[in-house]
Design a protein around this nucleic acid. Structure first.
Length: 575
DNA sequence: GCCGTTTTCGGCCCGACTGTTTTCAGTCG
């Protein structure tokens, strides 16, 4: 059982308990445990199997006490949890969908379930249409309308936006609000600012003498479908595509406190406020207070300084390791886009790319890269017109000829060699041995069982000619789940054979993800960040990969292609 | 359900906005 599966069980329990009106802090304990386990780089499976006293060892994890430790042990050993089974018997699974409707929380959902026997979204819609909801105590006509609107979004817009798409929306809205009278400053906050791979909604923070002009302008945005709420300082709108945008307007001397607060994460803020409380301080979005007296708030630096903390970069504000790093004075100096000097995974018109070799070289050089590897597909990827040995060798000749026309950039003869369904690689060793750079990847047989897929990748790692595994989990955000692979085993093998693992910078892939990257770093496995570009424009994806790497706490030293190519080669040779 | 150089019991972050209320509960972030 993977950490994510265990985390999912605890999330389900939290949902069900909340629905039943359990103590809110008990619910939070389950949610907190789910988050910590999901973020953990240590496989709990292994902890339980490899320990004399698993319960004691599990309790060392922050947020896991005796009770949850025992539940984890039960889950790992039996694959199930009696408590969850019991809860599921009491509450139909379909009921939980109701909790996802904006405007409905556990209390109202429970009332609907108890009084009107609403068990699904369809039941809920019917009850609203028949005006039975407005008759309930605590409900009314407006609540009924809110629920109907919420149903639309619950049914249609359940997907999170890719960060790269959110970035486009952010720029468009900033532009739209530019020049609003009295608007001094406008900054994005929330998970967008933290660089999460997907974004649920957009948060903007503004400094303005009068909030109304900015709110009016936002309401007039052509994509705004609905104003959900509007008060003195806060406004929420929904765009046509379903995305919610929040705008908060604060005075200048509260800007730092508010930016810190609305950037989150929620868990990071909970820790922060707990620390403040210990010192007799209170932090809210308006500032830091000792009693009635405000002692900070204009900048984020000021706010953190009241707790003797550094101003954490937004990407690591996740209540994972940042507070521990700060305590030890060992905050990593995060990687930056400017550190990247090479790109070791890209395609051309020889297979499924849209640009020629020369066009890719020129574009890479224009971006300031010192070296690139052309890594077109191998023959198994027929859909992409993959190369067999003869075509590959010929392609390499073309690469050499094209590269000769450029000065100041090294162009490597590479290949993205398929890891075949039955195991083994798509090209023979004598071909691969002639390449400057080989990435191996899984494209077929993605639904195979865990042992099988893992074995295929381990075998590829053993091959002396393979340099890196590309997009190691195969996921496509919002589209395809990662295939079943034992990443711990992959890390072990990569470490043993001195191989690299890729962080694919395509905004839809971004695997390894932040948690996995952090785990790889902990084992000293070098990460190579690659665009996997299929076009000239695709080379620009590097920044998305860098953002993900920053979330993992990676520094320039942790990433292979921040180094000169001759140093990368040295690393490949193990010297 | 977790946690502890103030605590093994009694805390657990904090405020804005809405709707259904005549003073506050529920939801959200």
């Amino acid at each position: 059982m993977t950490n994510n599966q265990i985390a999912t069980v605890f999330e389900q329990i939290a949902d069900l308990l909340e629905f039943q009106g359990a103590n809110a802090f008990r619910v939070r304990a389950y949610r907190n445990a789910a988050r910590v386990i999901g973020d953990s780089t240590e496989s709990l499976d292994r902890v339980v199997d490899g320990s004399e006293d698993p319960v004691k060892e599990l309790q060392a994890i922050e947020g896991i006490g005796k009770d949850l430790a025992e539940k984890i042990e039960t889950l790992v050993r039996t694959g199930a949890l009696p408590m969850l089974v019991e809860l599921q018997a009491q509450v139909p699974a379909s009921v939980l969908a109701i909790l996802r409707v904006p405007g409905l929380g556990p209390k109202k959902a429970a009332t609907l379930f108890k009084e009107l026997h609403v068990q699904s979204l369809a039941d809920l819609r019917k009850a609203c249409d028949e005006h039975r909801v407005r008759e309930l105590k605590g409900f009314g006509a407006k609540t009924e309308e809110t629920i109907l609107r919420g149903l639309e979004t619950a049914e249609t817009a359940d997907k999170r936006l890719l960060w790269a798409v959110a970035d486009e929306r952010v720029q468009a809205i900033r532009e739209h609000l530019q020049g609003v009278p009295g608007l001094v400053r406008l900054e994005p906050a929330g998970s967008y600012r933290r660089g999460r791979e997907t974004i649920g909604d957009l948060d903007f923070l503004a400094v303005a003498s009068d909030p109304n002009p900015a709110m009016d302008r936002l309401a007039a945005h052509p994509e705004v479908a609905l104003v959900l709420a509007r008060g003195e300082t806060k406004m929420s709108v929904r765009l046509n595509e379903g995305l919610q945008v929040d705008l908060r307007v604060v005075p200048e001397d509260s800007f730092g406190a508010a930016w810190q607060y609305f950037t989150g994460s929620k868990d990071h803020n909970v820790v922060l406020r707990g620390m403040a409380k210990d010192r007799g301080l209170k932090i809210n979005e308006w500032g830091v207070y000792r009693g009635e007296k405000k002692i900070a708030g204009a900048t984020e630096e000021d706010v953190y300084a009241t707790l003797d903390l550094p101003c954490f970069l937004p990407e690591i504000r996740e209540a994972r390791q940042e507070f521990e790093w700060a305590k030890q004075g060992a905050l990593p100096r995060l990687l930056e886009v400017e550190d990247m000097v090479g790109d070791l995974h890209m395609h051309t018109t020889a297979t499924d790319g849209t640009a020629t070799i020369a066009e890719m070289i020129a574009a890479a050089q224009a971006r300031g890269l010192k070296y690139i590897a052309i890594t077109d597909h191998s023959k198994r990827v027929t859909m992409a017109n993959g190369l067999n040995a003869d075509r590959l060798v010929e392609h390499w000749d073309h690469i050499e000829a094209a590269a000769a026309k450029f000065k100041g950039i090294t162009v490597l003869k590479g290949v993205e060699c398929d890891i075949l369904e039955a195991g083994g690689l798509d090209l023979d060793d004598d071909v691969l041995s002639a390449a400057d750079w080989v990435v191996a990847s899984v494209h077929y047989g993605q639904s195979q069982p865990r042992e099988r897929i893992t074995a295929r990748i381990l075998e590829a790692l053993e091959n002396p000619h393979v340099d890196a595994i590309a997009h190691p989990t195969g996921r496509l955000l919002n589209k395809r789940k990662a295939y079943e692979v034992d990443l711990e085993a992959v890390f072990d093998a990569a470490a043993k054979y001195g191989k690299f693992l890729e962080l694919n910078a395509n905004p839809q892939r971004l695997d390894l993800d932040d948690v996995a990257c952090a785990a790889a770093k902990r084992r000293g496995i070098p990460i190579v960040i690659s665009t996997d570009a299929h076009s000239v424009v695709g080379l620009g994806c590097m920044r998305y990969g860098v953002l993900q790497a920053r979330r993992a706490g990676l520094t320039k030293e942790d990433v292979v292609n921040t180094r000169a190519w001759r140093d990368v080669k040295r690393l490949m040779d193990g010297s």
